[in-house]
């Protein structure tokens, strides 16, 4: 804890960068992933190729993906965000699909029979009922991004990974811990709070709990 005591400002700065990196990534992941997930439940033939593509991208090792992107997006935060968003897409898209397709057929039949349009069914029935499952995906994506974002320091994206890499260069385990412990704490905090948020939207026994 010596490093933390002597350099609280640096740890706080890197912690802030880390949170920002994760927040931007998850926000973009939601903005792209949820509409994409909705799209592939409506345009069914797109579903397999999209899920396959996000799945394949997910398996590419992060360091390799960073390296591949550098010629196009350069060194720094931009590249990191692009790569991290790509990773977050798989769970977010998959859980959006699982959430929407988990809505009971009887419920949808009632919605149709009442005279809801397709848009109304989505807004008033499918999305609200899929929300807990979508949130579960966001939670997983957030926790994973917090971890992977530490590696992004290798390409100059900043964050807590910066402290860890410095510590590795200097074989300074105290410095490594000063980066790793806050990152782990951040992941646990995100997991816990998003879990609570998800339960607040749970309406009991209706939709499939896919994704967790």
């Amino acid at each position: 804890m010596r490093f933390l005591r002597e350099n609280p400002d640096e740890v706080l700065l890197r912690f802030g960068e880390h949170v920002q990196l994760v927040a931007v990534t998850v926000a973009l992941g939601i903005l792209i992933g949820v509409p994409l997930g909705i799209l592939v439940t409506k345009v069914r033939w797109l579903q397999r190729p999209v899920l396959l593509a996000t799945g394949v991208l997910y398996t590419v090792p992060s360091l390799a993906l960073f390296a591949v992107l550098i010629p196009y997006t350069g060194i720094g935060r931009g590249t990191a965000v692009v790569a991290l968003v790509v990773y977050s897409l798989l769970v977010i898209v998959r859980n959006t699909v699982a959430g929407i397709e988990g809505v009971a057929p009887l419920t949808l039949d009632a919605a149709r029979g009442m005279g809801m349009t397709g848009g109304q069914r989505l807004r008033l029935v499918e999305l609200p009922l899929a929300l807990p499952v979508i949130l579960a995906g966001v939670r997983l994506a957030t926790v994973a991004t917090i971890g992977t974002a530490t590696i992004a320091a290798a390409i100059g994206a900043g964050g807590l990974g910066r402290i860890i890499f410095d510590g590795m260069d200097r074989l300074d385990s105290d410095r490594i811990a000063a980066g790793a412990v806050p990152a782990a704490a951040l992941a646990l905090l995100a997991d816990w709070s998003l879990g609570r948020l998800g339960r607040a939207f749970w309406h009991g026994g209706e939709s499939a709990s896919g994704g967790e």
């Binding site: 609200p128 009991g204 209706e206």
Partner: peptide, 9 residues
Amino acid sequence: IQQGGLLPH
């Protein structure tokens, strides 16, 4: 419909 088909949320 059967079970009312109520919207659970």
